[in-house]
Simulated assay, not measured.
Amino acid sequence: MPEITIEELKKHLDEVNLIDVREIEEFDQGHIEQARNIPLSTLEYQLDAFDPAKTYHVICRSGKRSARAGDILEQRGIKTVNVTGGMLAWEETVE
């Protein structure tokens, strides 16, 4: 699965389909405005929310859950890009 850094994501933020796979409580504490929350724990039940013709950028807190989510999606034919560093890296660039 391809990966992208936070810096690269910021350059193309308005052009990507960003999925935040953190739990709802984490998402509610702070998230990227353009992100849609689909928690990893419910991902397999929401696969119909994904269009196989599109590519999805997946983010979490540090990059581990998003990598797992990407594996799940790619096994079902959905193209993904993992955002390395996750929200921890995002918060470092915002402050």
Rank of each mutant, 00 (worst) to 15 (best):
P2M: 15
T93N: 14
G86C: 03
H12G: 01
L43R: 04
L88Q: 13
M87F: 10
F27D: 07
R65N: 12
D14T: 05
H31N: 13
E44R: 13
L88H: 14
I6G: 00
L13P: 04
I24T: 11
R36S: 08
W90I: 07
E95F: 15
L73V: 05
W90F: 08
Y56N: 00
N82I: 10
Y56G: 00
V83H: 04
T42N: 03
T42A: 03
R65T: 09
E95H: 15
A69S: 09
L18Q: 01
A49I: 01
D71R: 13
E25N: 12
W90L: 03
Q46P: 00
V16C: 10
L18A: 03
E44T: 11
W90T: 02
P2L: 13
I38R: 00
T80M: 10
V58Q: 00
E3Y: 15
V94H: 14
V58C: 02
A49P: 00
G77I: 08
P52C: 05
I59F: 03
I38C: 01
F27S: 05
A53V: 03
D48L: 02
I24Y: 08
S66K: 05
K64E: 14
Y56C: 00
G70K: 11
N37P: 09
L9H: 02
D20W: 02
K11H: 04
V83E: 02
H12C: 07
V58S: 00
H12P: 01
Q75R: 15
L13D: 01
V81C: 05
P52D: 09
E33G: 06
E74D: 14
T84Q: 14
K10P: 09
L40K: 03
G77F: 10
M1A: 12
E92V: 04
E26F: 07
I19W: 04
E15A: 13
I78W: 11
F50I: 00
E92D: 14
R61A: 13
Q29Y: 14
E8D: 14
A67M: 13
E95K: 15
V81R: 06
F50Q: 00
A67N: 10
D51P: 04
K64W: 06
I19C: 03
E92L: 10
I78Q: 08
V21R: 04
R61K: 15
R36T: 10
Y45E: 11
T93D: 13
V94K: 15
H57E: 05
R36F: 02
E15H: 15
A89T: 09
L73S: 02
K79Y: 10
N17Y: 12
Q34A: 12
A35Q: 06
G86A: 05
I19T: 01
G30E: 06
K79N: 14
T80N: 06
F50M: 00
E26P: 08
